[in-house]
Design a protein around this nucleic acid. Structure first.
Lengths: 215, 215
DNA sequence: GGCACGCTGTGATGAAATTCACAATCGCCT
DNA sequence: AGGCGATTGTGAATTTCATCACAGCGTGCC
């Protein structure tokens, strides 16, 4: 629903949960837990145990009957499935509030994502340092990416500019897009887009306030 | 899957799309479009026409057969359904990169959301102005919210602190939570939580890079 | 060694969401 | 005035996702 095209077999909700499992496993590993069972996962995350097992089953066998899963090994295998076992270069387009926040977000590197370049269209921003990253001219996306080879773009520009920069990014060789602008991007079949929208999330939450009959 | 509790009848995906429709309709209105049909919606947003009609059908009848929907009226009605037809006070907890970005995000006011208070735990930040909002002490969430009456909280603190501030916010009378921390919050049944996770989104996108057999 | 328990992996079942398809309605055109 | 093309609203069919339930395996205990 969120993506233009999807892989043949694996459900998208499964992929979303994989990322959750990964995060969870990393924490477990930090706590020196060596083994975990699917029922433990359910207890600690609220995700159904059978769901967990089935999600994993799309990618092979991971656990030992009667024992459970080796935390470290499972963590490593999920990371490999999600292709975040090696540094992944990313371009950020739009260095406003949100773009800057992303550039400064430490969690990215922690998960092997690396912001290789940041662009903006505002001359006042171009050339400025953001953290240790220089803001580049949006017009140079293509030439710069010839060097960098980023296949992931994060779009943080206002809605009105989003479609344009998406087109540019795709031209520059980007394969997947994380879109923070509150519009639906029109892209070729082969490009995968995921949208993140605070406004949408807030709207859903706002709706749920109604069910409180309490004054 | 994302929310703890849900309304009796309306599917959550429908609510998510309603926010999309709303945004789309606002844009149409700005372009002085008066009427639109469900097939037009499909052409312009990619969302199936029947889906659009069914989504609306959960809330009554909106269109005229043979004609379509009045943009302005539909926009107003969806806004009322989502309860974003009147200013909604929100509290933001955590004034780091992300929290600051949210505070400065103009789209929020545009959609009748109003950040009434922002909190942090870092003494260096407390008392500082962020835009025209003073950062308050996280310890004062309860007392401050007695005045403000925010029922929505946005959590922008690191994962390790998220559960704690969620508990506090709930104690302070918050009913729904937008959680940006990459953990699964444990909350009472009645509280609705929605999670936003860049990392998760990026992971899903990263996975899709595999399907590019191109070297 | 054999038995009993615990846990995995998965086919079968059930629930939920999406899409289809069509009767009912509206406005326009003649 | 009456018929026709367009479009809605919605039961039914389809597809997708989540859960159940159990056979089979591995482990440790007696």
């Amino acid at each position: 629903m969120n993506s233009s095209s999807s892989s043949p077999k694996v459900p998208i909700p499964t992929l979303e949960r994989l990322a959750t499992y990964l995060r969870f496993l990393i924490d477990l590993e930090a706590s020196h837990v060596e083994t975990i069972s699917s029922t433990d996962v359910e207890k600690q995350t609220g995700i159904n145990a059978a769901q967990f097992r089935k999600d994993l089953s799309y990618f092979g066998e991971f656990g030992k009957p009667g024992v459970g899963y080796n935390v470290q090994e499972l963590q490593a295998r999920i990371a490999r499935i999600l292709k975040i076992d090696q540094l992944q270069p990313i371009m950020v387009i739009g260095a406003g509030n949100l773009g800057s926040a992303l550039i400064g977000y430490p969690g990215l590197t922690e998960h092997k994502f690396h912001i290789a370049a940041a662009f903006d269209r505002d001359p006042a921003k171009i050339g400025c340092l953001q953290g240790n990253l220089m803001i580049l001219d949006e017009a140079d996306v293509c030439t710069v990416n010839a060097d960098i080879g980023a296949r992931i773009a994060i779009i943080c520009v206002p809605a009105s500019a989003a479609q344009g920069v998406a087109d540019t990014a795709i031209l520059a060789g980007v394969k997947v897009i994380l879109n923070f602008a509150p519009i639906i991007l029109r892209v070729p079949e082969r490009i995968v887009v995921r949208n993140v929208s605070f406004l949408q999330e807030l709207a859903v939450l706002s709706y749920h306030l109604s069910s409180d009959t309490k004054k």
